[in-house]
Design a protein around this nucleic acid. Sequence first.
DNA 1: AAAAAATGAATGAATGTTCATTTTTTAATA
DNA 2: TATTAAAAAATGAACATTCATTCATTTTTT
Lengths: 208, 208
Amino acid sequence: MNVHFLISLLSNYKIMAQLQKSIDKRNALIKATIELVNNNGFHATPMSKIAKMANVSPGTIYLYFENKQDLVNQTYIEVKAEYTKYAFANYNEDACVEKSFEVIWKRIADFKLKECEYAFFLAQCDNTPIIDEASRQEGIKHLQPLLDLWARGKQEGVIKPIDDYLLYAYSINPLSFLLTIQKRAAFTLSKNQIEEAYQAAWDSIKLK
Amino acid sequence: MNVHFLISLLSNYKIMAQLQKSIDKRNALIKATIELVNNNGFHATPMSKIAKMANVSPGTIYLYFENKQDLVNQTYIEVKAEYTKYAFANYNEDACVEKSFEVIWKRIADFKLKECEYAFFLAQCDNTPIIDEASRQEGIKHLQPLLDLWARGKQEGVIKPIDDYLLYAYSINPLSFLLTIQKRAAFTLSKNQIEEAYQAAWDSIKLK
DNA sequence: AAAAAATGAATGAATGTTCATTTTTTAATA
DNA sequence: TATTAAAAAATGAACATTCATTCATTTTTT
């Protein structure tokens, strides 16, 4: 269900305003969830605190989400969708594999380092059992363009003919580690270091 | 406090047996903690379950650990120590940088893929706020030999002159991702793929 | 005035921790 | 060695707290 499409169908401004209000509330809840889980962990994030941070009554959460698990699942899916949307926003398939990869990689780096709250939340979900397997699967879907690019790269002999998991582990996932360090140590990756990181990523998967 | 040193001081076998029993109980608690946290997450791992799995009364846990947080902290430190001990067990500084790195890398891979319960637990702790910052610091200490090797490699112009965090992110950390995949997808890295992973690791940090 | 949305106090289940009691171990004595 | 009293370890029921969730009531919107 695409919210913007729905809105475009509505002629009544009051309804639109109402709907916007609902969306705002939902977003506030998701934002609060991310912030609290990031700082305290899932185990120390009660619904009451989420409600308070979102300026909403605890009961209201249940108008938007089935239960706590559902809230976290949906938060995960939403953040993951934003992540991949950002990653592929300005990607077109015309460029050569190496250039295309660089563009995508840098968008991902951009997202992870700038929207580091989002990225940290994803890292937590990806490394713990707090997310349903179904939601996890849902989150992976949008990565297809990258997999397609790699397939092309393998065919052209530009990228190592190894499993996609390996390619991902070495060229993309390290960014998650770096962002975690950055968040924890109050240390910031310089522009130069991002370039070095990109080189390491490309070196690890390029052929010859 | 080194337990083996203590034992060597004791002449009375009964005391030794007693001490062994205590150690067994403590180990059972730590093992249960790892297993439950891995499968259910920290938030869904009550002390009562840990006690049950360790065949111990809930109250007994508090004879060995201050509280739940302390139990998890100590579990983390213990597992991390085992990990690094294993990693550097057969390392000697005589070989060349590349060979030394390969030896350490393969030991780490070995540990992470064979003792995958341990490694998965570490990955969880490293990516969430369930561990005290102090315990985290404690866990990092034993990584020094690798940092020293990298320093030597940089000096000799064999390894890229980039931050250790970057070296770690690209050459070591990807194994954590691979092990997570392996645990989740019931997919096993083949011997060949481990070799490919090593190549990717080395390619990402080697100079030239 | 009717309908919908939001509230927040109340509920009941779950959880971390304690402590009075029981069980096991130790050390002394016969 | 056998007996026994003191000490230590372990137990698990009980406690206090916290938390997710509900629902009767209030507020807001139609």
